[in-house]
Amino acid sequence: MNFKRAFRVWQRNATVYKKLYRSSLTLNFFEPMLYLVALGYGLGGFIEEIMGMTYIEFIAPGIVMSSAMFAACYECTYGTYVRMVYQKTFDAVLATPISFNELVLGELLWGTTKSLIYGTIIILVISLFGLIKSYFAIFLIPLIILCGLIFASLSLIATAIVPGIDSFNYFYTLVLTPIFLFSGIFFPVEDMPDVVVKLSQINPLMHLVNISRAFSYGKITQNFIYDLTIVIVYLIVLIPLPFILLKRRYLL
């Protein structure tokens, strides 16, 4: 595996994105803003205080993570699938010195880059709202990268196993939506029934949201190590899978 050649694949996607970003940047950025404003102020009007914060303070660090998550997911499901199947970009790339693993690594890193772009924009916006209260917030950037790597890998796995592009609906409805809703962004999961609390322990987004909240307000507790450990375990388990599964699907 040669990182420079993987970078060439990343660079190809960046070149295309640079031409098209105007149309996608606004949309991707609009949705998290809607959540923040509608729920933060709308629903927040009815909630006096949650874990010692206003409601918008409570949800903002989580929105950073969910934006990063969805950015990587869109890119590595629909984006990668179109390149692999419809545009036959994979065929074109593999006729050059770039190997299959380098191609997959390029896709993975590009998905992560999308997380970084969209996550960072949300950080800037919420800091304009005055919702960043600690210098620890600088660590949100590496955290977004971890978030991007996890969900780019998970999405590439989905891309490797879906029979067709319509099947991504299952992935979004049955996997990502529950991950998003039960991640502790909008309400603390601990107050839910026991089974939900137990299930949410395997939700990688919940651990990312916990860490994000800790960084945003500079309140690092003992749970931090536990959350970070789970995130790292996810990284180690997930990252090799796209390489194996996409190869099985694609190479004859």
């Binding site: 050649r5 060439r8 660079q11 190809r12 070149t15 295309v16 031409k19 098209l20 545009q87 970009t89 074109a92 790339v93 050059t96 010195p97 770039i98």
Partner: peptide, 16 residues
Amino acid sequence: DPDLSVLENLIVYARY
């Protein structure tokens, strides 16, 4: 690459 121009297609490919 359908999103790129004629020249860009060649340049991107040359980078590989």
